[in-house]
Amino acid sequence: MNKEIKIGTVLLSSYLVWAVGWLIYSYFIRGSITSPYFPVTDMTKELVFPGNHGFLLGTDIYGRSVVEILSAGLAYSLGVSLLVSLTSASIGIVIGYLSVTGSNVIKVGSDLIINLIFIFPSILIAIMVMSVTGQSFWGLVFALVITGWPGYARIARGETMRVINLTYVESARAVGVPELRLFLKVIVPAILPLMMVHIVLGVSGVIISEAALGFLGLGGSEYSWGAMLSIAKTVLLEAPYMVVTLSAVMAGLIIGLNLLGDGLRDYLDPRKSF
């Protein structure tokens, strides 16, 4: 196991423990399942600098603890990114497989849609989709899935073409193994390791995209890190610690995901074995 995997795992594990700890605190300690706890607004404690009045990282313009809004934003960002990445990968695997084994209509149609989506910047497509679906959590997820699945579909298509030409797969198809069983028992397990690498890398991309939409005012939650950065920039001179803290926390998570993804890619590359 290389150093990138180790460092990435340590960083990502620390963020996951942080997010799980916040969820336990929000839903079981300070709140309940039906009424979870969220950072409390207190305008009398607006822009308290870190270390003052018991606030480790200070407060924002609404008097909310920066530690608490960072925690809520972390849980939200990880939840959205995992949901979007897993959904996009699932759609991409299915469409990638069908583009190899399906009819010409499916092949041409999938290629056309993928190319159209890749022509335009993903952030613009997401903005257009959200202008139709409206600003909401599920609208955000839908917009990010729309822009995310084509990348997985291209990878799945290439891997499916490689696997489907292997001798044992051709033999299975020759003896009449059903396509669905072949897909679930052979194709998916064969391409899953490579897809997992791209899912890990894709999570970081979704976090950045979600933050960009939140910064533009199109986020699905007020605790989106992008929305927090948008607020923090308005008081950049008065409270620079907000931008610095938010940027550092987001950068740490992105670096951890990228290190883990790059490490897994090198580890699973058969050429590295020689």
Rank of each mutant, 00 (worst) to 15 (best):
185 K>T: 12
195 M>G: 03
97 Y>R: 13
170 E>C: 06
1 M>E: 01
253 L>C: 08
138 W>T: 06
176 G>N: 00
37 Y>M: 05
160 T>N: 02
20 V>G: 00
97 Y>W: 14
15 Y>M: 12
214 G>C: 09
33 I>V: 13
53 H>T: 08
132 V>W: 09
83 L>P: 10
220 G>I: 01
232 A>Y: 10
134 G>W: 08
116 L>K: 00
11 L>S: 05
199 I>M: 13
148 G>T: 07
8 G>N: 11
126 A>M: 09
5 I>Y: 01
45 K>M: 13
42 D>H: 08
243 V>P: 07
72 A>V: 15
21 G>H: 04
94 V>F: 10
249 V>S: 04
207 I>V: 15
167 T>N: 12
87 T>Q: 04
141 V>I: 15
154 R>A: 06
201 L>I: 14
26 S>P: 08
118 F>I: 08
272 K>S: 15
152 Y>H: 06
268 L>N: 09
143 A>S: 14
196 M>I: 15
174 A>W: 07
212 A>L: 07
273 S>P: 02
47 L>G: 08
181 R>A: 08
167 T>F: 01
113 I>H: 03
218 L>S: 05
82 L>R: 09
29 I>H: 04
200 V>T: 14
95 I>V: 15
88 S>M: 01
81 S>V: 10
15 Y>L: 00
209 S>V: 02
271 R>G: 03
180 L>I: 14
169 V>D: 09
269 D>G: 02
105 V>W: 13
57 L>Q: 01
199 I>K: 00
